[in-house]
Design a protein around this nucleic acid. Structure first.
Lengths: 214, 214
DNA sequence: GTCTATAAGACGATAGAC
DNA sequence: GTCTATCGTCTTATAGAC
């Protein structure tokens, strides 16, 4: 039971285990994204992380638990950035469009695993009623954050009213997801600035519809 | 070798085979939608169609071929309806919104297999470069059809110009996909008329942006 | 806490009877 | 043209060495 190393350990036992867990989760994200939930084997994941299946099962009860853990951690990583962009009133409208478009291009092009992983999460959730509500709650939280930002911005600009911010936030997020998927299929289908343009059209159409009611 | 039925056969041999193929494809669509491509077994599919695996393999070379066949047949089944709605100038703008929203509600709610199947197609395609282009071409064909309809409508209304109809069509389709997925996750996230509203906002914002440039 | 080895079963696909 | 039976492989998860 004694440790062979007498000098102070750099990593405690709990820390090395946490590190193993983190490495396994990272590898799992990649393998699940590349082969899908059913298509990925636990051997793939463990080996890709540099461990054995035994090590994996000492950290996670099952393949499902590993996947669900991922779903919990990797929820609104990128959406926070979008909310930040929209809430930042220092830039011009053109800057905002450019930044939103850039975000979409990044998600579709650079973080190659995110979009397929999100699709796997969605499929997993709609097939298991017990997780459907959990994922819906996650989305609602994200939407509420964006919705609040939109409402604040509208108030600052003196646009009073009955604008359905929740609906607009939902549309902005759904469009993002849809365009990311299309751009992953063929980048030429979704030009660099299409998302920014679309959000711009949406907002100006929205404020027009709102003004008309005054 | 003789048929036990002496009266003229209702189905020729080729017809029964075609019928078997059709039944297998139908069952495959359901099982793939419910369990995913990797998660579905050929036994599941054959049994669900009322045949054995041997019968399946006498009609399809492999599980992959069966899936790809599905992908080819079930492409733009619903998009044609959307194009029809947009191209139909007999109704009011309100009718158009209502019809588009209804279409989304139908796809998300009634044809329960379509959305997950589409997601499986997308995942399958982005993981296999050789099919990615085929699916992209399918999307482009659908987009072009919608784009043409939009351009015609704009011309009729005397809106000249530099409107990027391809981009608008892409946005309308991406938004549809995104909202369908959200509504499948939780119907309350996507109210009945959100899609129609969003398309309306989009178009009025678009024509505003266009007028501004004149 | 992580490894090797293995259990128990499901998988895709094939061969041969009918 | 479809069925039954089976091959070889890969799967998730566990047990015991270290």
């Amino acid at each position: 039971m004694r440790d062979e190393d007498e000098r102070p350990r750099r990593l405690t036992r709990a820390e090395t285990k946490a590190r193993t867990r983190a490495l396994l989760l990272e590898a799992a994200a990649q393998v699940f994204a590349r082969k899908g939930f059913a298509g990925a084997s636990v051997d793939d994941i463990a080996e890709s992380a540099g461990f054995s299946t035994g090590a994996l099962y000492s950290n996670f009860a099952s393949k499902d638990e590993l996947f669900v853990e991922l779903l919990s951690k990797r929820s609104g990583s990128r959406l926070a950035e979008a909310a930040e962009i929209v809430s930042d009133r220092s830039g011009s409208v053109e800057d905002e469009q450019a930044l939103l478009s850039r975000l979409l291009v990044d998600v579709a092009g650079e973080d190659m695993d995110l979009a397929p992983l999100q699709a796997e999460f969605w499929l997993y959730a709609i097939r298991r009623p017990e997780f459907q509500e959990r994922m819906a709650a996650q989305f609602r939280a994200n939407r509420d954050a964006l919705s609040t930002v939109l409402a604040d911005r509208a108030k600052e600009r003196g646009q009073s009213g009955d604008v359905p911010f929740d609906g607009v936030a939902t549309v902005v997020m759904a469009l993002f997801q849809g365009l990311v998927q299309l751009r992953r299929m063929d980048p030429e289908l979704v030009p660099e600035n299409l998302y920014g343009d679309a959000v711009h059209w949406l907002f100006s159409g929205l404020s027009a519809a709102h003004r008309a009611k005054d």
